[in-house]
């Protein structure tokens, strides 16, 4: 997923959100605004998009398990098929927007772009944008699901790179503050964009580069350390900021074990690390067990600080912190 300025891959934006959160309104807005961008749209319900000249394809969710021993590795077979056909008409569009159903799990959607070589070479997952309805999101998040069933609203928030908090006119200012606080308790790194009728600047959700290793640096985990839960069974964000240099071998073992044993629970991860003896940063990002890492910028005179964030279920900050510190060269 490393991206250079010469990356010619087509950017893909994934729009998720519950029914009624305003996805179709946003989609129609993206398509009708005079921004000079040629879009291809994959929508989940045919005929929602009311723009005649747009290249629109319809998809029905088909989840395929990958036959590779990775238990959380599922992909969207329908997207592989449709995107591959769409790429034959590459000259017709500059970017792709995929709208998922309100009940869709974002993980297979994201994993599709890592697991299928043909798509990975031609397409670049830009960002997952989640729309939420300010008036109803709390009820959706509180909904108790049967054992083993995921709360899709929680998942969609946890996976998001941008959160559009729509219909803010339907809640009072106090309620809005409470909703934002609640959303942040799940996903502390995605910017929250308040909106009325999905009226946002498109620049806020397009060309985000959320899966771009060069932009892993653009988060600040410092504010994540304030979280008041230490161990929580719900979905939270855990940010770590630990000065020092890490032993590469210990780090590899630690990350490998963490993703192998907790990969199902860790939805998204990002980090910038300081390997011992290296003049450059090591940057990584992951979706469940799928992991992508490369060298980052030169450290220069900057203090060596390891910064990471994990968004997931049953995350134990103390455990993550102490196990990472065990990888430091000078403990």
């Amino acid at each position: 997923m490393a991206r250079s300025t010469t990356d010619t891959r087509v950017p893909v934006t994934v729009l998720t959100g519950f029914l009624g959160s305003g996805k179709t309104t946003l989609l129609n807005r993206i398509l009708t605004e005079q921004h000079g961008l040629r879009m291809a749209v994959i929508e989940n319900e045919f005929g929602e998009v009311g723009v005649d000249d747009a290249l629109v394809l319809d998809s029905k969710e088909e989840i395929f398990e990958m036959n590779n021993g990775c238990i959380c590795c599922t992909v969207r077979g329908d997207l592989i098929r449709i995107l591959s056909a769409l790429m034959r008409r590459r000259d017709r569009f500059d970017r792709i927007v995929i709208e998922t159903t309100g009940l869709a799990d974002p993980a297979p959607v994201a994993q599709t772009f890592f697991m299928d070589d043909e798509l990975a070479e031609q397409l670049r997952l830009d960002a997952i944008v989640t729309l939420v309805d300010a008036a109803h999101i709390t009820a959706h998040l509180d909904e108790v699901k049967p054992e083993g069933v995921e709360n899709e609203a929680v998942e969609q928030l946890a996976f998001a790179d941008r959160i559009v908090l729509n219909k803010t006119d339907l809640v009072s200012p106090d309620e809005l503050i409470a909703v934002i606080k609640r959303v942040r308790s799940i996903n502390a790194i995605a910017p929250v964009i308040p909106a009325l009728q999905a009226g946002i600047e498109l620049a806020e959700i397009l060309d985000v580069g959320a899966f771009d290793l060069e932009r892993v640096l653009e988060f600040d985990p410092a504010f994540l350390t304030e979280s008041d839960h230490c161990h929580d069974t719900s979905v939270t964000s855990v940010g770590l900021e630990i000065p020092g240099e890490v032993d590469v071998e210990l780090l590899n073992t630690w990350l490998g074990e963490l993703l192998a044993t907790k990969g199902v629970d860790i939805f998204r991860s990002k980090g910038v690390l300081a390997p011992a003896g290296s003049a450059v940063e090591y940057v990584f990002q992951g979706v469940h067990m799928l992991f992508d890492g490369s060298d980052g910028r030169e450290w220069g005179d900057r203090e060596r600080i390891n910064r990471m964030v994990f968004i997931g279920r049953n995350l134990d900050r103390g455990e993550l912190d102490s196990s990472f510190r065990a990888c430091l060269v000078n403990k």
Partner: peptide, 11 residues
Amino acid sequence: RWLVSGNQDAS
């Protein structure tokens, strides 16, 4: 005599 499939899992 034979039926062969090409698969997503590179097999």
